[in-house]
Design a protein around this nucleic acid. Sequence first.
DNA 1: GTCTATAACGTGATAGAC
DNA 2: GTCTATCACGTTATAGAC
Lengths: 199, 199
Amino acid sequence: MNSATRQRIVMTALELFYEKGFNSTSIADILSRSQVHSGSLYHFFPGKQDLLVAVLEFYRDGIRENLLDIAWVNVDDPIEKIFALLNGYRTGLLMSDYRHGCPIGNLALEISEPDPRIRDLLQINFTNWIGAIEQCLDQAGGRLPQGTDKRALAEFILTTMEGAIMQARTAQDISVFDRNVGVLRAHIDLLTEKAKERS
Amino acid sequence: MNSATRQRIVMTALELFYEKGFNSTSIADILSRSQVHSGSLYHFFPGKQDLLVAVLEFYRDGIRENLLDIAWVNVDDPIEKIFALLNGYRTGLLMSDYRHGCPIGNLALEISEPDPRIRDLLQINFTNWIGAIEQCLDQAGGRLPQGTDKRALAEFILTTMEGAIMQARTAQDISVFDRNVGVLRAHIDLLTEKAKERS
DNA sequence: GTCTATAACGTGATAGAC
DNA sequence: GTCTATCACGTTATAGAC
């Protein structure tokens, strides 16, 4: 079930979907980059959609070790964890010359009529990301005003990330990303200031 | 140059790109829905990319009358104009059963290697939108703290809109859109409160 | 499980009469 | 400018030997 070939296929598909999008990636692209032959691929995956499912499952299962743990190395403060994660996407943009944004976000906008498996997997990936941020906000506990809706704020942080990436990619200019994150930082600062006043 | 046929082709392409995306829309789709024959289409447009250019030019040239004027009917307050515009996208999501997000945002994420014409047109469409919001913020003048970077805030509002749409579409749930707009509203309220303190 | 060969289809695009 | 017919190609997917 998890042969080396299968893994290579999934990782290659992941890369290509990330760089070019799902529709613009052909099976032939995947075959040539992964050095696998058509028969092998179709042995593991009935069709292209199933390949996408496998990729989304990989993201879902690896969010901790492939994303969060890497971004949070040497970062302890829960608020700074949030900005460290955003900074990871910033680095991805720069390193890839604006080809790599957020893999889930790209797919979420590209797939207009997803089959239910795919829609659910996109959603669970977003939900897990939001959940991780919400945990940070919970840990930041008293620094936020009483009654702050931490779930809504976590969703808003995802929103900021996705929107900032979209604009930076289009402009091919990181400064718009930085300004967006700056406004988010300003908002969180206003919240922490407000929390201090009360105490 | 602007025959009825040409217009019908452009409007049909606009609709289909909006609903299904650029790559997932075939020339055949456009021909059948617009009731035009292949020869006519290729008479006006050398290729599919040129059709996208025409669509993006239509958005660029019509932002005032097709978007802003409609959203701002009976809305005078500059801050409320911002939320009225966001509410227009909310309505679009609901009316289309989450198929219609932001046409520019969708294309911006879908087109991974745009030719320069297309990238420039995506960018100018974003810039015009941001500029309209910035004008609102300028009009709201003294209600914001001195030294507020209104351009950055306008970019951030676009970010909020795009991210909120992305999440609402994926979840097929308008409440996440509303919560995102709610956090944006809270941020702007905090800014106006802060401006009042000073005076 | 892996390989080669190829089928079946949809795609963007063209030719040429009218 | 519009129409029909069709090409050349790339696509997903399959067949069948090994």
